[in-house]
Computed example of a mutant assay.
Amino acid sequence: MYRPTAEAPAVTRPISLAPLTVVELGPDEMVDCAARAGFDGVGLRLIRATEAEPLRPTVGMTPLIRETRRRLDDTGLALIDIEVLRLKPQTRIRRDFAAFLETGAYLGASQILVTGNDPDHLRLTDHLAELADLAADYGLTPNLEPMPWTDVVNLQQGAAIVERCGHPNVGLLVDALHYDRAMNTPADLAALPTEWIRYVQICDGVAERPTSVEALRDQGRTARLFPGAGNIDLVAMLGALPQGVPVSVEAPVLWQAPAIERSRAALRGAREVLDLASDRRHLA
Protein backbone atom coordinates (compact mmCIF):
# COMPACT_ATOMS: atom_id res chain seq x y z
CA MET A 1 0.00 0.00 0.00
CA TYR A 2 1.59 3.29 -1.16
CA ARG A 3 1.47 6.26 1.25
CA PRO A 4 3.45 9.20 -0.11
CA THR A 5 4.93 11.78 2.25
CA ALA A 6 6.37 15.21 1.66
CA GLU A 7 9.75 13.93 2.93
CA ALA A 8 9.93 10.92 0.57
CA PRO A 9 12.84 11.00 -1.91
CA ALA A 10 12.17 11.33 -5.61
CA VAL A 11 11.28 7.92 -7.04
CA THR A 12 9.75 6.56 -10.19
CA ARG A 13 6.08 7.41 -10.10
CA PRO A 14 3.71 4.45 -9.69
CA ILE A 15 1.11 4.46 -12.50
CA SER A 16 -2.47 3.50 -11.66
CA LEU A 17 -5.50 2.69 -13.80
CA ALA A 18 -8.45 4.95 -12.91
CA PRO A 19 -12.01 3.55 -12.96
CA LEU A 20 -13.36 6.01 -15.53
CA THR A 21 -10.91 4.72 -18.15
CA VAL A 22 -12.68 1.35 -18.14
CA VAL A 23 -15.92 2.29 -16.39
CA GLU A 24 -17.76 -0.77 -17.75
CA LEU A 25 -15.70 -3.06 -15.51
CA GLY A 26 -16.53 -4.07 -11.96
CA PRO A 27 -13.81 -3.71 -9.31
CA ASP A 28 -12.67 -7.33 -9.51
CA GLU A 29 -12.44 -7.09 -13.30
CA MET A 30 -10.57 -3.78 -13.00
CA VAL A 31 -7.88 -5.36 -10.86
CA ASP A 32 -7.32 -8.10 -13.44
CA CYS A 33 -7.33 -5.60 -16.30
CA ALA A 34 -4.83 -3.29 -14.60
CA ALA A 35 -2.51 -6.19 -13.80
CA ARG A 36 -2.66 -7.64 -17.32
CA ALA A 37 -2.01 -4.22 -18.86
CA GLY A 38 1.08 -3.69 -16.69
CA PHE A 39 -0.02 -0.98 -14.26
CA ASP A 40 1.55 -0.63 -10.81
CA GLY A 41 -1.76 0.17 -9.16
CA VAL A 42 -5.46 0.63 -9.60
CA GLY A 43 -8.30 2.86 -8.42
CA LEU A 44 -11.74 1.46 -7.67
CA ARG A 45 -15.16 3.06 -7.90
CA LEU A 46 -17.16 1.80 -4.92
CA ILE A 47 -19.94 4.37 -5.31
CA ARG A 48 -21.11 5.04 -8.84
CA ALA A 49 -20.84 8.58 -10.15
CA THR A 50 -24.01 8.52 -12.29
CA GLU A 51 -27.19 6.46 -12.46
CA ALA A 52 -26.14 5.29 -15.92
CA GLU A 53 -23.39 3.18 -14.34
CA PRO A 54 -24.17 -0.34 -13.10
CA LEU A 55 -25.22 -0.61 -9.48
CA ARG A 56 -22.93 -3.18 -7.87
CA PRO A 57 -22.64 -4.49 -4.27
CA THR A 58 -19.38 -2.67 -3.64
CA VAL A 59 -19.84 -1.30 -0.10
CA GLY A 60 -19.57 -3.71 2.81
CA MET A 61 -18.10 -7.20 3.10
CA THR A 62 -19.96 -8.52 0.06
CA PRO A 63 -18.77 -11.49 -2.03
CA LEU A 64 -17.69 -9.04 -4.75
CA ILE A 65 -15.56 -7.04 -2.33
CA ARG A 66 -13.97 -10.18 -0.90
CA GLU A 67 -13.17 -11.38 -4.41
CA THR A 68 -11.68 -8.00 -5.27
CA ARG A 69 -9.44 -8.17 -2.20
CA ARG A 70 -8.34 -11.67 -3.23
CA ARG A 71 -7.38 -10.43 -6.68
CA LEU A 72 -5.49 -7.46 -5.24
CA ASP A 73 -3.53 -9.86 -3.07
CA ASP A 74 -2.88 -12.26 -5.95
CA THR A 75 -1.69 -9.55 -8.36
CA GLY A 76 0.23 -7.45 -5.84
CA LEU A 77 -1.30 -4.26 -7.27
CA ALA A 78 -1.45 -1.21 -5.01
CA LEU A 79 -4.93 0.19 -4.46
CA ILE A 80 -4.19 3.90 -4.83
CA ASP A 81 -7.66 5.36 -4.38
CA ILE A 82 -11.36 4.68 -4.01
CA GLU A 83 -14.23 6.83 -5.24
CA VAL A 84 -16.43 8.73 -5.18
CA LEU A 85 -17.66 10.60 -2.10
CA ARG A 86 -19.82 13.67 -2.69
CA LEU A 87 -20.02 16.30 0.04
CA LYS A 88 -23.56 17.70 -0.17
CA PRO A 89 -25.54 20.08 2.06
CA GLN A 90 -27.42 17.15 3.63
CA THR A 91 -24.33 14.97 4.12
CA ARG A 92 -23.90 13.26 7.48
CA ILE A 93 -20.35 12.02 7.49
CA ARG A 94 -20.46 9.00 9.78
CA ARG A 95 -23.95 7.92 8.74
CA ASP A 96 -23.26 8.21 5.02
CA PHE A 97 -19.61 7.20 4.69
CA ALA A 98 -18.54 4.89 7.53
CA ALA A 99 -19.32 1.69 5.60
CA PHE A 100 -17.49 3.03 2.52
CA LEU A 101 -14.43 3.84 4.61
CA GLU A 102 -14.47 0.44 6.26
CA THR A 103 -14.64 -1.21 2.84
CA GLY A 104 -11.75 0.87 1.54
CA ALA A 105 -9.62 0.00 4.54
CA TYR A 106 -10.37 -3.70 4.07
CA LEU A 107 -9.26 -3.46 0.44
CA GLY A 108 -6.06 -1.64 1.39
CA ALA A 109 -6.73 1.79 -0.13
CA SER A 110 -4.88 4.91 0.99
CA GLN A 111 -6.65 7.78 -0.83
CA ILE A 112 -10.27 8.84 -1.41
CA LEU A 113 -11.58 10.95 -4.29
CA VAL A 114 -14.01 13.58 -2.99
CA THR A 115 -16.14 16.11 -4.85
CA GLY A 116 -17.64 19.29 -3.46
CA ASN A 117 -21.37 19.40 -4.21
CA ASP A 118 -22.33 22.17 -1.83
CA PRO A 119 -22.45 25.87 -2.79
CA ASP A 120 -21.88 26.82 0.86
CA HIS A 121 -18.11 26.48 1.02
CA LEU A 122 -17.97 27.09 4.78
CA ARG A 123 -20.25 24.10 5.38
CA LEU A 124 -18.32 22.13 2.77
CA THR A 125 -15.09 22.89 4.62
CA ASP A 126 -16.58 21.68 7.89
CA HIS A 127 -17.74 18.47 6.25
CA LEU A 128 -14.31 17.91 4.68
CA ALA A 129 -12.60 18.34 8.05
CA GLU A 130 -15.06 15.93 9.68
CA LEU A 131 -14.45 13.41 6.89
CA ALA A 132 -10.70 13.80 7.34
CA ASP A 133 -11.03 12.97 11.04
CA LEU A 134 -13.13 9.88 10.42
CA ALA A 135 -11.06 8.70 7.45
CA ALA A 136 -7.87 8.91 9.51
CA ASP A 137 -9.27 6.18 11.77
CA TYR A 138 -9.25 3.91 8.70
CA GLY A 139 -5.84 4.96 7.35
CA LEU A 140 -7.42 6.91 4.48
CA THR A 141 -7.02 10.48 3.21
CA PRO A 142 -9.79 12.42 1.41
CA ASN A 143 -8.67 14.39 -1.65
CA LEU A 144 -10.90 17.20 -2.92
CA GLU A 145 -11.08 17.28 -6.72
CA PRO A 146 -12.16 20.56 -8.34
CA MET A 147 -14.21 20.05 -11.49
CA PRO A 148 -16.38 22.49 -13.46
CA TRP A 149 -19.71 20.72 -12.99
CA THR A 150 -19.48 20.66 -9.18
CA ASP A 151 -19.62 23.51 -6.68
CA VAL A 152 -15.81 23.55 -6.49
CA VAL A 153 -15.17 24.54 -10.06
CA ASN A 154 -11.43 25.18 -10.22
CA LEU A 155 -8.05 24.85 -8.56
CA GLN A 156 -8.33 28.19 -6.80
CA GLN A 157 -11.59 27.29 -5.09
CA GLY A 158 -10.31 23.86 -4.13
CA ALA A 159 -7.10 25.29 -2.68
CA ALA A 160 -9.04 27.86 -0.66
CA ILE A 161 -11.22 25.13 0.87
CA VAL A 162 -8.28 22.87 1.70
CA GLU A 163 -6.37 25.78 3.23
CA ARG A 164 -9.39 26.84 5.29
CA CYS A 165 -9.87 23.25 6.37
CA GLY A 166 -6.37 23.24 7.83
CA HIS A 167 -6.43 19.50 8.43
CA PRO A 168 -3.24 17.41 7.99
CA ASN A 169 -5.25 14.50 6.55
CA VAL A 170 -6.65 16.32 3.49
CA GLY A 171 -5.32 16.41 -0.07
CA LEU A 172 -6.09 18.36 -3.24
CA LEU A 173 -6.46 16.23 -6.36
CA VAL A 174 -5.25 17.78 -9.62
CA ASP A 175 -6.91 16.38 -12.76
CA ALA A 176 -5.10 17.31 -15.97
CA LEU A 177 -8.26 18.00 -17.99
CA HIS A 178 -9.87 20.22 -15.34
CA TYR A 179 -6.55 21.96 -14.72
CA ASP A 180 -6.20 22.78 -18.40
CA ARG A 181 -9.83 23.76 -19.00
CA ALA A 182 -9.68 26.17 -16.05
CA MET A 183 -6.62 27.87 -17.65
CA ASN A 184 -4.41 27.02 -14.70
CA THR A 185 -0.63 27.11 -15.04
CA PRO A 186 2.39 25.23 -13.69
CA ALA A 187 3.06 28.27 -11.51
CA ASP A 188 -0.36 27.77 -9.88
CA LEU A 189 0.60 24.18 -9.09
CA ALA A 190 4.07 25.02 -7.82
CA ALA A 191 2.52 27.42 -5.30
CA LEU A 192 0.54 24.61 -3.63
CA PRO A 193 1.91 23.02 -0.44
CA THR A 194 3.55 19.75 -1.46
CA GLU A 195 1.82 17.84 1.34
CA TRP A 196 -1.54 18.51 -0.30
CA ILE A 197 -0.66 16.44 -3.38
CA ARG A 198 -1.13 12.73 -2.60
CA TYR A 199 -1.68 11.61 -6.21
CA VAL A 200 -2.50 13.18 -9.59
CA GLN A 201 -4.80 12.27 -12.48
CA ILE A 202 -3.59 12.59 -16.06
CA CYS A 203 -5.14 12.35 -19.51
CA ASP A 204 -4.99 14.57 -22.56
CA GLY A 205 -7.44 16.70 -24.49
CA VAL A 206 -8.03 18.48 -27.77
CA ALA A 207 -6.84 22.06 -28.08
CA GLU A 208 -10.32 23.61 -28.25
CA ARG A 209 -11.81 24.11 -24.81
CA PRO A 210 -15.58 23.56 -24.44
CA THR A 211 -17.54 26.71 -23.64
CA SER A 212 -20.42 25.25 -21.60
CA VAL A 213 -20.55 23.22 -18.40
CA GLU A 214 -22.55 20.53 -20.21
CA ALA A 215 -19.89 20.18 -22.90
CA LEU A 216 -17.15 20.11 -20.26
CA ARG A 217 -19.01 17.34 -18.43
CA ASP A 218 -19.50 15.28 -21.59
CA GLN A 219 -15.86 15.64 -22.57
CA GLY A 220 -14.65 14.83 -19.07
CA ARG A 221 -16.73 11.67 -18.80
CA THR A 222 -16.47 10.21 -22.29
CA ALA A 223 -14.17 12.10 -24.69
CA ARG A 224 -10.72 12.57 -23.26
CA LEU A 225 -7.52 11.49 -24.99
CA PHE A 226 -4.72 9.22 -23.85
CA PRO A 227 -1.72 11.01 -22.31
CA GLY A 228 0.49 12.50 -25.01
CA ALA A 229 -2.18 12.35 -27.72
CA GLY A 230 -3.53 15.88 -27.26
CA ASN A 231 -2.57 19.46 -26.51
CA ILE A 232 -2.29 19.61 -22.71
CA ASP A 233 1.26 20.30 -21.55
CA LEU A 234 1.42 17.34 -19.19
CA VAL A 235 5.20 17.52 -18.92
CA ALA A 236 5.11 21.04 -17.51
CA MET A 237 2.19 20.15 -15.25
CA LEU A 238 3.98 17.11 -13.79
CA GLY A 239 7.17 19.10 -13.41
CA ALA A 240 5.37 21.50 -11.09
CA LEU A 241 4.06 18.73 -8.82
CA PRO A 242 5.87 16.53 -6.27
CA GLN A 243 7.90 13.95 -8.17
CA GLY A 244 7.15 10.73 -6.32
CA VAL A 245 3.36 10.76 -6.05
CA PRO A 246 1.34 8.18 -7.98
CA VAL A 247 -0.13 9.03 -11.37
CA SER A 248 -3.65 7.81 -12.04
CA VAL A 249 -4.55 7.57 -15.73
CA GLU A 250 -8.15 8.75 -16.11
CA ALA A 251 -8.74 8.68 -19.84
CA PRO A 252 -12.20 7.65 -21.07
CA VAL A 253 -11.92 7.82 -24.85
CA LEU A 254 -14.22 7.54 -27.83
CA TRP A 255 -12.72 4.24 -28.97
CA GLN A 256 -14.84 1.10 -28.92
CA ALA A 257 -12.00 -1.30 -28.20
CA PRO A 258 -11.87 -3.91 -25.42
CA ALA A 259 -10.96 -2.59 -21.99
CA ILE A 260 -7.58 -4.30 -22.00
CA GLU A 261 -6.56 -2.66 -25.27
CA ARG A 262 -7.64 0.78 -24.05
CA SER A 263 -5.78 0.21 -20.78
CA ARG A 264 -2.56 -0.78 -22.52
CA ALA A 265 -2.76 2.27 -24.79
CA ALA A 266 -3.39 4.51 -21.76
CA LEU A 267 -0.35 3.07 -19.99
CA ARG A 268 1.90 3.47 -23.04
CA GLY A 269 0.93 7.12 -23.28
CA ALA A 270 1.47 7.71 -19.57
CA ARG A 271 4.93 6.12 -19.64
CA GLU A 272 5.97 8.24 -22.61
CA VAL A 273 4.83 11.42 -20.87
CA LEU A 274 6.56 10.48 -17.63
CA ASP A 275 9.76 9.71 -19.52
CA LEU A 276 9.62 13.16 -21.11
CA ALA A 277 9.00 14.77 -17.74
CA SER A 278 11.96 12.89 -16.26
CA ASP A 279 14.22 13.94 -19.15
CA ARG A 280 13.23 17.58 -18.72
CA ARG A 281 14.07 17.47 -15.00
CA HIS A 282 17.49 16.00 -15.73
CA LEU A 283 18.22 18.71 -18.30
CA ALA A 284 17.05 21.54 -16.03
Rank of each mutant, 00 (worst) to 15 (best):
D233H: 07
D233C: 03
D233M: 05
L234M: 09
L234F: 05
L234P: 12
L234S: 12
L234H: 10
V235I: 02
V235Q: 05
A236C: 01
A236D: 14
A236K: 10
A236S: 15
M237R: 09
M237P: 03
L238H: 06
L238K: 10
G239T: 05
G239V: 02
G239I: 03
G239F: 03
G239D: 09
A240W: 02
A240E: 04
A240H: 10
A240C: 05
A240Q: 07
L241N: 06
L241E: 10
L241A: 07
P242W: 02
P242E: 02
P242K: 06
Q243T: 12
G244T: 06
G244V: 01
G244Q: 12
V245C: 09
V245R: 07
V245I: 12
P246V: 10
P246L: 11
P246E: 11
V247E: 00
V247K: 04
S248H: 06
S248W: 03
S248P: 08
V249Q: 09
A251I: 14
A251G: 09
A251W: 10
P252L: 15
P252E: 14
P252I: 15
V253T: 15
V253W: 14
V253D: 12
L254P: 08
L254D: 15
L254F: 08
W255P: 05
W255D: 15
W255H: 13
Q256D: 13
Q256H: 12
Q256G: 10
A257K: 12
A257C: 01
P258E: 07
P258C: 04
P258A: 02
P258S: 02
P258H: 06
A259R: 01
A259Q: 05
A259T: 02
A259K: 01
I260L: 15
I260Y: 07
E261P: 00
E261M: 07
R262W: 01
R262D: 11
R262L: 15
S263W: 04
S263L: 04
S263P: 10
R264F: 03
R264W: 03
A265E: 14
A265H: 11
A266D: 04
A266Q: 08
A266P: 07
L267T: 00
R268K: 11
R268W: 06
R268C: 02
R268P: 02
G269F: 05
G269V: 08
G269Q: 07
A270F: 12
A270D: 06
A270T: 05
A270M: 10
R271Y: 02
R271W: 11
R271P: 08
E272L: 13
E272K: 14
E272I: 08
V273G: 02
V273M: 00
V273N: 06
V273E: 01
L274D: 03
D275G: 01
L276Q: 15
L276M: 07
L276F: 09
L276E: 15
L276W: 01
L276P: 00
A277T: 01
A277W: 00
A277C: 00
A277D: 04
A277Q: 08
S278Y: 05
S278W: 08
D279S: 13
D279P: 01
D279K: 12
R280C: 08
R280Y: 05
R280T: 11
